[in-house]
């Protein structure tokens, strides 16, 4: 695989008044990488993610996402990323098919492309029978899998996932990660936050934010070695224990 950076930041900072939500973040994410973005509540994850998605203008520092500048080319960034969160995902009062069609339309896919994508998605998720079912009637796990597939319906370079598996049962949670691996194998870069520390292990590299700064960034294996920990849970605990900042 070619080592291309799809996200690159340099001293990226966001201040709200006197409060430094994100302090000089410098990191890069490679194409096709599964990048875990961890941190305690209030560490600055959401702020950082919003800057990368082009939703929030940084106070200082540099940043490139999908080859575009996060200050001047925010519209281009939005076209090249996908986004999914635990809270916002799909329209409950639309059917599965309608949701796919709607998001396909938003990202400017042609009618033909949407039809092809819909068929492909329904087969992949084994939702053919449920195509005309309202999303509100699907179990949570299915909803989240569908939401993920829709977030990458326009073949974005990067997909941002904000706690995508919260509350999902263990079996479906793993099926969800299967989808992530498949997408990653196709070259989609995955930028994911999670509260499940075992999921941190599935990532190629993990960054841990504490009080607005990146306190650690490496592969799970190296992090465990470095902190003499048996699992990521312990690594996280060692780093986040001394956090002074709340939500």
């Amino acid at each position: 695989m070619m080592e291309v950076d799809v996200i690159r930041t340099e001293n990226l900072t966001k201040k709200f008044g006197n409060f430094i939500a994100a302090n000089e973040l410098t990191f890069n994410v490679k194409k096709g990488e599964i990048f875990g973005f961890l941190g305690a509540n209030g560490a600055g994850k959401t702020t950082a993610m919003r800057m990368l998605c082009g939703l929030l203008e940084p106070s200082s520092g540099k940043g490139m996402v999908a080859g575009y500048d996060i200050y001047t080319q925010r519209d281009d960034i939005k076209k090249n990323i996908g986004y999914m969160s635990q809270k916002f995902s799909l329209y409950d009062d639309l059917t599965v098919r309608e949701n796919i069609r709607f998001y396909g339309g938003i990202y400017g896919l042609s009618r033909k492309e949407i039809a092809a994508k819909t068929a492909e998605l329904l087969t992949e998720l084994q939702l053919e029978k449920e195509a005309k079912v309202l999303v509100s009637q699907l179990p949570l796990g299915w909803k989240q899998k569908l939401a993920f597939s829709i977030a990458i319906v326009h073949d974005p370079q990067i997909v941002f996932l904000d706690e995508p598996t919260g509350g999902v049962d263990p079996v479906t949670r793993r099926q969800f990660w299967d989808l992530i691996y498949h997408a990653s194998a196709r070259g989609v870069t995955i930028f994911v936050t999670t509260h499940y520390m075992d999921e941190a292990e599935y990532c190629n590299r993990v960054s841990i934010m504490v009080d607005g700064v990146i306190a650690a960034l490496d592969s799970p294996a190296n992090l465990k070695l470095k902190y003499g920990a048996n699992n990521m849970d312990e690594v996280f605990y060692q780093l986040a224990r001394n956090a002074t900042r709340g939500e």
Binding site: A40, N41, A240
Partner: peptide
């Protein structure tokens, strides 16, 4: 403990 980070959970 839902939605609470690992440290607060402990």
């Amino acid at each position: 403990t839902t939605g609470v980070d690992a440290v607060s959970r402990k």
